[in-house]
Design a protein around this nucleic acid. Structure first.
Length: 826
RNA sequence: GCCGCGGUGGCGGAAUUGGCAGACGCGUCGGACUCAAAAUCCGAAGCCCCUCGUGGGUGUGAGGGUUCGACUCCCUCCCGCGGCACCA
């Protein structure tokens, strides 16, 4: 490497090879004391990396390299979220086996990542489609089954007719499939579930411990869990022995109940539909609607009288029971008490079906009347028409009424969550098989541990029609019952791919461990992840599942950890021409193309400089040019000025010229700024801006007419500082310049920089002099000047004299190092 | 509808704890180098006004407030983005 031209292609290949050969980024098996685990969300191997990946992984790489230079042992792994639908679609469309397609994609994407110079410990790489990975997931499944955390149940589930599979609630976005945007319909199926609801409270409480997570992600998770506190109350049904159980958050409005509403899917409705064809028709009609249609008819409150009456336990009043489409079976008990005066939905329903109203809450200073109410009053107030509770404030009445209900055995306090159990069955081939055998005699039997993994068969036909290829694979289906030895039938559903990504971060600590899923020593030494980086789109999907799974693994005894990710950074999207990059928009920028034209360092610098990580990044070809220009400028600063940095030796601070002192100070200020921006704030754009300022200052310094020997030593030192500051951000050029400056050790191993606090402070400073908040002058004063002295100088300024002429000084405010404000009045 | 985030030059963005708004970069303009162009280096620039100066005013979505002082805090409103959306 001896060219004086900046040739990123050559430099980058050279250093990537050396890093790999000398295993620079290999993490030790056990983490030492001050270790750092830096993880980026691993990709689905779709074929090629896109700019979103480049940005995500560049951010992670800067953080990992920074901590490495600070002497910490860093775990920075990469792998592949390799199961999923696209592989199967490729098989159907192009006749290539999912395993082969996936392997090819992985190989190519790995090569792309290597060309970006990411500091991964590739020895820890794995794909979740490896049997050596998913076998442990099957073991977890069996353990969860034993603990009742996995169960099978027949219920209404989200079904995508395009993907021909079930979707979890988290995978339905606005009523459509998150992958293909097909409207999702409700289908009653036998499915496997993970009991995430058992952890609802802990997942919610945990949000408050996650200090290193962005507030908006926590808010989204809290909303998703959706805790509400209220009461469950039984309303006895007239002429029946059972009672209608309802959940309400407003027990204080119990005296205002004028009817009841139940979901069309409510178990009671099945009986009724058999006897009454009008009800049967209504139920059929409402169920044929997909979610989208139900939402669109929001304003219309459809319903039908069930013929049943319920008795309000508090008043002994008989109220009619309606079947209403807006009542959801999945939430609460699938039945509600209706208080039209104090719930807008009930109000609308009552109006449409001409049902009576009764006001039971009167806010201070108002008195609602049933005949004149145009909308429900949902706020607090004083109870009215509420028997012995009349006159009590609503908040207090809630407590009192619940206590009363409990004393009578009519109901009790109840906490309800919006979160529902995680449906994990997928009717697809390319996923981890669920290790269960069905036997006519023994029923559902888990596959014995010694028979794991239940491997995916490879000889499979992909027709794209009907059910999963596994369901029509005779050899796969046929199995012997582990309990009785008779012929059984294997489960053909596979697990949701979000199961794999719920624990991969732990496996990175011990990817080759084969005595169990996780090597306790290495897992406990490395975890939790110190810094996790990925897109905001996983705020409630992956990030909630991973938290849940961590708690499950803890309770199964595999891990001693409550939360997997200590700090979370959610990076924004990469945008071009005002839209997310996508094939359909035709605004895709290909990373390969950019790397070959400008080099990886330029691509990295652009991604880091154009915006702070959380914000969307606007791709700009001119911006890339700018990044490239900057690196060229850095290159020339070193290469073209060799005569100025041949002097080796410590910087003789006392003998520096005045410009030299300025440079020395500027360099230390830059170290301080970059250390804070990269190490703490993760604001790489301002770190780069500071480095650019230093480069600009060094250019001016180098062009000075004559430079003394002390100043030459300073210049050399400054270039070393510059290389190090740049090393996490643009590692190849930094490594190359470092070597050209004569260093034999990798820059990665040469330590970070210390700030000399005394070098940072300036002797003189500029203060703005304001009169009534308007800047009128700027003065140079020595640091630490007293207020009187500063004031004296300020009042001597001609501009200041002019603007306070004929005024009386009321007050003077000095903000040290910043400004002096003179407040005057006529 | 509810919750959250945001709105700063021609553009991307900076201002970290209430203290000089516009750092840094892009683009633009001017100069140097060149036969010329590109590249490079140096410099100018928020906007408006005028008597063209070492001048004045104004300015962070709009309006109001608190403060000696507000991009920053409070209230009302407008716009954009994201999440949730009949959750009882």
């Amino acid at each position: 490497m001896s060219s004086n031209e900046y040739l990123p292609g050559e430099i980058e290949a050279h250093w990537q090879e050396r890093w790999e050969k000398e295993q620079v980024f290999k993490a030790p098996r056990l983490a030492p004391e001050n270790s750092f685990y830096c993880l980026e969300m691993f990709p689905y191997p779709s074929g090629r990396i896109h700019m979103g990946h480049v940005r995500n992984y560049t951010i992670g790489d800067v953080i990992a390299r920074y901590h490495g230079m600070n002497g910490r042992a860093v775990l920075h792994p990469m792998g592949w979220d390799a199961f999923g639908l696209p592989a199967e679609n490729a098989a159907i469309e192009r006749g290539i086996h999912p395993a082969k397609w996936t392997r090819q994609n992985i190989d190519y994407m790995r090569s792309q990542m290597k060309r970006m110079g990411f500091s991964y410990d590739w020895s820890r790489e794995f794909a979740t489609s490896d049997p050596s990975y998913y076998r442990w997931e099957q073991l977890f499944f069996i353990r969860m089954l034993e603990k009742g955390l996995a169960y099978r149940s027949r219920s209404y589930v989200n079904w995508c007719s395009q993907c021909q599979t079930v979707l979890a609630n988290e995978q339905v976005e606005g009523g459509v499939c998150w992958r293909c945007s097909t409207p999702v319909i409700q289908k009653e199926l036998e499915q496997w579930f993970f009991r995430i609801t058992a952890y609802a409270e802990e997942l919610l409480q945990g949000c408050d411990q996650l200090r290193g997570w962005p507030e908006r992600v926590l808010t989204m998770q809290k909303n998703w869990i959706g805790k509400s506190v209220g009461a469950e109350v039984g309303f006895p049904l007239v002429n029946r022995s059972d009672a209608l159980r309802i959940f309400t958050t407003r027990p204080d409005t119990l005296y205002g109940v004028t009817f009841m509403s139940i979901a069309p899917e409510h178990p009671i409705v099945k009986d009724l539909a058999q006897k009454d064809s009008r009800i049967a028709d209504f139920v059929k009609r409402s169920q044929s609607k997909d979610r989208q249609a139900r939402i669109e008819t929001q304003t219309s409150k459809e319903g039908i009288f069930s013929g049943l009456y319920a008795i309000n336990p508090l008043t002994q009043e008989k109220v009619p029971v309606y079947i209403a489409t807006f009542v959801l079976m999945e939430y609460g008990t699938g039945a509600i008490m209706a208080v039209p005066t104090h719930d807008q939905r009930d109000f609308e329903f009552a109006r449409q079906h001409r049902l009576p109203l009764r006001v039971v809450i009167q806010p201070q200073g108002e008195s609602f009347r049933e005949e004149t109410m145009q909308t429900a009053y949902e706020g607090e107030g004083i109870l009215a028409n509420s028997g012995p509770f009349t006159g009590i404030a609503s908040e207090e009445a809630k407590k009192k009424i619940v206590e009363y209900l409990e004393s009578k055995g009519w109901g009790q306090k109840k906490v309800q969550y919006r979160l529902r159990d995680w449906g994990i069955s997928r009717q697809r081939y390319w996923g981890s098989p669920i290790p269960i055998i069905y036997c006519d005699t023994c029923g559902m039997v888990p596959v014995p541990e010694k028979d794991l993994p239940v491997a995916l068969p490879t000889d499979v036909a992909f027709t794209g029609k009907g059910e999963s290829p596994l369901a029509s694979h005779p050899n796969f289906i046929s199995a012997t019952c582990p309990r009785c030895g008779k012929k059984g039938r294997r489960e053909t559903d596979t697990m949701d791919t979000f199961v794999e990504s719920s624990w991969y971060f732990a496996r990175y600590a011990c990817p080759d461990y084969n005595k169990g899923p996780l090597d306790p020593d290495s897992v406990h030494s490395w975890l939790p992840v110190d810094q996790y980086i990925g897109g905001i789109e996983h705020a409630v999907l992956h990030l909630l599942y991973a938290r849940f799974f961590t708690k499950v693994l803890r309770d199964l005894g595999y891990i001693r950890l409550d939360e997997p990710f200590q700090n979370l950074l959610t990076q924004g999207m990469v945008i071009k021409d005002g839209a997310k990059m996508s094939k359909s928009k035709g605004n895709i920028v290909d990373p390969d193309d950019m790397i070959s034209r400008f080099g990886a360092d330029t691509v990295r610098v652009f991604c880091l400089f154009a915006a702070p990580p959380e914000k969307d990044l606007d791709w700009s070809d001119q911006g890339v040019q700018g990044a490239s220009r900057f690196l060229q400028r850095v290159w020339r600063l070193v290469i073209d000025q060799e005569s100025l940095w041949k002097e080796v030796g410590p910087v003789p601070v006392k003998d520096l010229s005045s410009q030299g002192i300025e440079i020395y100070r500027k360099a230390h200020q830059t170290i301080q700024k970059v250390t804070d921006d990269v190490g703490r704030r993760y604001h790489f754009n301002t770190a780069l801006a500071a480095i650019m300022e230093l480069v600009n200052a060094l250019y001016l310094f180098a062009s000075a007419a004559s430079i003394s020997d002390p100043d030459k030593r300073l210049f050399r030192w400054s270039l070393e500082v510059l290389s190090k500051l740049l090393a996490p951000l643009a590692p190849h050029i930094a490594e190359e310049l470092w070597a050209r400056l004569g260093h034999k050790k990798f820059i990665v191993h040469s330590g970070w920089l210390e700030v000399d606090p005394s070098a940072v402070v300036e002797e003189m400073q500029t203060l703005a002099v304001q009169v009534n908040g308007k800047v009128r002058a700027r003065i140079q004063v020595p640091v630490g000047f007293s207020e009187e002295r500063v004031r004296e100088i300020a009042l001597g300024e001609e501009k200041v004299v002019q603007s306070i002429q004929g005024m009386r000084i009321e007050k003077v405010v000095l903000v040290p190092g910043r400004l002096l404000n003179i407040v005057v009045r006529r």
